[in-house]
Amino acid sequence: MAVLFDIISWALLLGGSALMLIGGIGLYRLPDVYTRMHGAGIIDTLGAGMVFAGLMVQAGLTLVTVKLGLIVVFLFFTSPTTTHALARAAQAEGVLPLLDDKGEDDVDLSQYGMDGVDLTEEPDKSKT
């Protein structure tokens, strides 16, 4: 039984580590701020989450597990908030997202009754 728990926790730890590395690579490779946020999202959600889950399995039913759980819950509540605050700050400064024109044609937005946003217009410089 102990061996089984060890294997589960090792798998979770290794998977989380690999995902964090991928997130770091994404943060390095992706072309602009808004796309890099997705890379940071991997580190914040499943990367850290899986590592903490692995540690939880390792700790068993103790106070340590509760604390790890608290950290995960807290991380999952704050991570979107910080990302959104950062995205809004970048938008207010007029940092335009890099767009792929070809991609817009791939997904037919009209079939869902929605339109894409036209970002070719100049940002409102008077505000900043």
């Binding site: 490779r29 070809k102 791939d106 929605m114 946003v117």
Partner: peptide, 12 residues
């Protein structure tokens, strides 16, 4: 090749 198609969409 980094096959990304970054886009901004509006939803309700």
């Amino acid at each position: 090749k980094l096959p990304i198609q970054p886009m901004v969409i509006k939803i309700k």
